[in-house]
Amino acid sequence: MKTGATLALDHGPCRAVGQNLGMDEAALIRAAQAGDQDAFERLVRDYDQSVLRLAMNLLRSPEDAHDVYQEAFLRVYRNLPSFRFDCNFNTWLYRIVTNLCLDHLRKRKVRKTESSVVETEEGSIDRMDSVPEQRASSDPQRALLSSELRTRIQQVLAGMTPRERLVFELRHFQGMRLRAIGETLGTTEEAAKNCLFRATQKMRSALGEFV
C-alpha cells in the first residue's frame, strides 16, 4: 500500500534530483519559457512517466493515455510562456492532466449511456487475461487474485464518479496529499477528503465479502 510515507508526488529518481535542487526547476522553466528546447524536454522527462502512469490508470486504455500525454504536454508547451510561478509547476501540470482525464472519463460516461461501452472495457480486460502465464510469473500476487475479484474492482472503479475516481487515483496510486489534490482540482482539502471517503465506501460495499 502506498500511503503516508510519500510526502509529495512520487516522480522517480529524475524528479528527486529536481526536488533537492528546487532552484533548478525554476531555472529550467525559465529557460523553456525563453525557447530552450532542451530545457523543455528535460522538464517533460522529469514528469512524463508519472503523467503516463496516471492517465493509464485512470483511463485504462493505452490509446487514451497516449492522447492525454500528447495533449497535456502540448498544452504545457503552448501555455508555458504565461506560467507565472504563482503555483507549483507540479500543480499546474497536474491540473492540465487531470482536466484532460476528466474530459475523457465524462465522454465515456455519455457514450456508456448511449450504447454499450461495456464491450470495449471487457475487451481490454480480455486482453489482460489473454496473457495469464506472463502475468503469473511477473507478479505472483496477481495470480492469487481471482479473476472475479479483479473484475469486481474494475467495476467499482468504473462506478465511481469521475471526481471520486480522480481523488482516489491521485491519493492511492500517485501518493499525492489531499491538500495538493484539492489545489490541483481547484477545490478544498475537505472536498477532496469527502471524495476519498465516498470512493472508499464504494469499494467497501462492493468488495465487502472479500474482506
Partner: peptide, 9 residues
C-alpha cells in the same frame, strides 16, 4: 485489506 486489493488493480 481493501486498500491492498486496489493496489492489484
Amino acid at each position: 485489506k481493501l486498500s491492498s486489493f486496489a493496489d492489484l488493480a
